[in-house]
């Protein structure tokens, strides 16, 4: 099993947001998590990535069999967990290339691989960026500073492509994207699908799932998974909305 979450409870600012969430994702599988605003979707993604302030008060998370919650955020990244942010952070003064090279080499080092020199890195970064229709200027600019919504999301997918994670968590990757940008980002993500790589696609809308077709769909409400099914469940939700599920959970 790639990811095994059992009865996870997470508190933010003293308030319990995840209330016993369980979920298993097999290697190579793509799972979608859908749910209304406030159901705890982003909390789940941050808790898995190890963000400060997301206190785990119960349950376990095993990643490739090991205890994920015992690791620092950077160790989780090296182990192969990648969170594509809903709102990628702007970092003035840090060039994107510097950031990407630091990240790639930090992860390679922790994985026991040799670090890339400047030339090797640049060749790799340019090749991956080209696939996402990102020119060299994206590499030179400060991290996400002045990037449009679509450019920020492409930059997330670029990082994903460079870090080669085993588990990709995509938090509302479709938010703020027009249809063309969505297609470029979805193509990038689909290009990374492989039998060794699992994905957790978190979204409010079914739209993204037309492009990134999941193996399983889960509905989340009030901090738990309340229903699971195949890809058809997403379309069913699109018609009926979340109202019924919210009541079920309550």
């Amino acid at each position: 099993m790639m990811l095994d979450i059992d009865d996870l409870r997470v508190t933010v600012d003293g308030k319990e947001i995840l209330k016993g969430l369980s979920l298993s994702v097999g290697a190579g599988e793509v799972h979608a998590i859908m749910g209304p605003n406030g159901s705890g979707k982003s909390t789940l993604s941050y808790a898995l990535a190890g963000r400060e302030g997301y206190a785990v008060t119960g349950g376990t998370v095993r990643f490739k069999g090991a205890d994920l919650l015992a690791l620092d955020p950077e160790e989780r990244a090296a182990a192969g967990v990648f969170l594509a942010f809903q709102y990628p952070i702007e970092i003035p003064g840090v060039p994107n290339t510097t950031f990407l090279k630091e990240a790639v080499n930090a992860v390679r080092k922790q994985r026991g691989e040799s670090e890339l020199d400047a030339m090797q890195f640049l060749r790799l970064a340019r090749e991956k960026a080209k696939g996402l229709k990102m020119g060299d200027e994206f590499l030179k600019r400060a991290v996400n500073v002045g990037f449009s919504g679509g450019e920020k999301k492409r930059n997330e997918v670029l990082q994903m492509a460079l870090l080669e994670p085993a588990l990709c968590i995509l938090d509302e990757t479709d938010s703020g994207l027009d249809i063309d940008a969505l297609r470029v980002v979805a193509d990038g993500v689909n290009g990374l699908r492989s039998p060794e790589r699992s994905m957790l696609v978190i979204t409010h809308y079914q739209r993204l799932l037309d492009y990134i077709v999941p193996d399983r769909v889960h509905v989340m409400a009030q901090g738990r998974i309340v229903r699971s099914g195949g890809p058809d469940l997403a379309r069913e939700l699109e018609e009926s909305g979340y109202a019924g599920f919210v009541e079920t959970a309550a």
Binding site: E74, L83, P92, F99, V107
Partner: peptide, 21 residues
């Protein structure tokens, strides 16, 4: 957190941010 979530250790991440500042 963004830098650390990409594998960059806390000390290096802090140094990167200070240098940018």
């Amino acid at each position: 957190f963004y830098l650390r979530s990409r594998g960059i250790g806390a000390e290096t991440a802090r140094a990167l941010l200070i240098r940018a500042f």
